[in-house]
Design a protein around this nucleic acid. Structure first.
Lengths: 336, 336
DNA sequence: GTGAAAGCGCTAACAC
DNA sequence: GTGTTAGCGCTTTCAC
């Protein structure tokens, strides 16, 4: 487990450390061809591996990007991470991942840990749109290269990428209306996520546009995952609240709702339609009649990386906010 | 973006670096209470953050664990990663994640990158059970602390954790038989994954046990994800091969198969039953009649961490192979 | 073309 | 209790 160092190579060859170092970075102008060959061969023979910790310390760059994600229930953030890695790996960056588990204290610790590690930059999707606001402001002030994605934070002067929640939601709800549904239940997300309010706003605006009265009892706070969605759906049905379509905040909610409807022998999509905002392509796999709007994961990753790299290059550059149109593809649908 | 160092603190206080260092690690026996207080206060005031790169170089421990996973399509590996993080984070470890995308060259690069980083240990789920065999043997010989999980590798003297594919598959296929199904189609996994053969072996043994003839046409290689499963299912049906149940290698395959059956108006579970090995809980959400055996993710993570930590502590300790029973829970089922 | 020396930020002997 | 020194493994001036 003892690793070979350039010093070992230097000793073996009877030359100096610096020459070895130069040879290994193939600094052709300052080292003779012959020396380079000898060094490289010896390095191979001795199974030398450059210690990146040392390189990083010296260059004061970790060549590492930290990604902070709020949850690991859906594949959305994994897909995002994969996409980021595909772009950044060829450029020599490593990815550190931290999962906050929807807990803003964990999120804060994760973030601090990354900073202590002197990562070059941080991509973060926040688990709460306000809780760590002051905390982040401090980092923004100190020009830590960071970019928020997906779950962004309001009132923060920082680069961010998100998809256009408002228009996506608008599109989706309107689609239900065009199909003939009128009493649309909205399983809303938690208050602490910013996207929740955007989608709710769209929901209300669609109703207004089509002259449908807004019924408060048709908007219920329904958490984020499958169990939450199922519970909410049951609650609504038990309360005898009448509705003919469901617009869900997440696809997991949609799954939960679907399960409940099936258990209660309510047919989708004839008696009830389900539509949801989809982080991944999961939702429509689940039931062909669930209408969904997809998140543009790949593009989001691409933009986030672009913004981050520009911040890394110039930490004091002005921030930029990118709002991506969601993929307005009705993956599958059935008329009422 | 210039970080404060202990030297800065030392200068500000007119004391030496070492005292600062000692004070910050609250070495009460060698520093006076007063000094500690002064140092800590100053550190806070100056917003000092310990540079972990430097600490790591000095201690020659990165306090980092690398995780190499083959894919990011399902949530299984994310769940695993989350579980590992939950255990290791409190112990001061960071997690680096690398996704191989089912490519053994990428996998190799990822692995090497981790080694260059001098991570303390590596958890790996291999994308191919043979391709990198010699490569890994080299690392095993050099006593690099590593543990294989889920997709383990044969003929390698290295600690590993996997679930009991054979018995899980046996259980699942037998369950179908007890329900009255006889012509069971097996959507098999790719040859390059070791688990594939284990499950196929179980499949054949179950048939033998129940005196059912083995029909080669009922075993088709069906890749790994949803599209693969759908294609295979279509191929089988188009070929007019008769079957009354499907035993899938992955839940994504099951999703694909289910979709095809639905499109062709074949009713599940009356005309056809689907059973699959499930990495996550996704499958049964998809259709209540899909029978699944769950992977014990949490336990797998726990065991993998245990084995890895023991290797880190004593790299020359003998290897250990842990085979976990899968959760033999029929999450939901319907009689034929 | 090569070597000697300094230093990235930190800790741990070893003095006093 | 505190300071001095050396060194983790590497790169990069600066001499020659």
């Amino acid at each position: 487990m003892k690793y070979v160092t350039i010093k070992d190579i230097a000793n073996a060859l009877g030359i100096s450390k610096s020459t070895v170092s130069r040879a290994l970075s193939s600094d052709t102008r300052n080292v003779s061809e012959r020396t380079i060959r000898r060094v490289v061969e010896m390095a191979q023979k001795m199974r030398y591996k450059k210690n990146e910790m040392a390189v990083n310390l010296r260059s004061r760059r970790a060549k590492t990007i930290g990604i902070v994600v709020p949850e690991a229930v859906t594949t959305f953030y994994l897909q995002f991470t994969t996409a980021v890695q595909r772009i950044l790996q060829p450029q020599g960056y490593r990815i550190i991942l931290a999962i906050s588990d929807e807990d803003f204290l964990t999120e804060r610790l994760n973030f601090e840990s990354f900073d202590n590690y002197r990562v070059d930059g941080i991509l973060i999707s926040s688990c709460h749109h306000r809780a760590n606001l002051e905390f982040y402001k401090e980092y923004v002030r100190r020009c830590t290269p960071m970019v928020f994605f997906d779950r962004t934070v309001a009132d923060l002067e920082c680069s961010s990428v998100r998809s256009d929640d408002y228009h996506s939601a608008f599109f989706l709800v309107e689609h239900l209306i065009y199909q003939g549904y009128r009493r649309i239940l909205h399983l809303a997300g938690p208050d602490y996520i910013r996207n929740t309010s955007e989608r709710l706003r769209a929901y209300r605006d669609v109703l207004k546009k089509h002259g449908i009265d807004y019924c408060p009892e048709l908007v219920v706070s329904a958490g984020i995952d499958e169990v939450d969605g199922a519970e909410a759906m049951n609650r609504v049905l038990d309360a005898g609240i009448r509705c003919d379509a469901v617009f869900c905040f997440t696809e997991l909610q949609a799954l939960g709702a679907k399960k409940v409807l099936q258990e209660r022998a309510i047919h989708i999509p004839s008696e009830m339609a389900i539509a949801c905002m989809s982080g991944t392509k999961l939702a429509t796999l689940v039931h062909p009649a669930i209408t969904a709007v997809e998140q543009p994961v790949e593009q989001m990753a691409k933009e986030a990386v672009r913004l981050l790299l520009s911040k890394i290059e110039n930490p004091t550059a002005p921030s930029e906010t990118v709002v991506l149109p969601a993929n307005m593809v009705i993956r599958s649908s059935t008329e009422k």
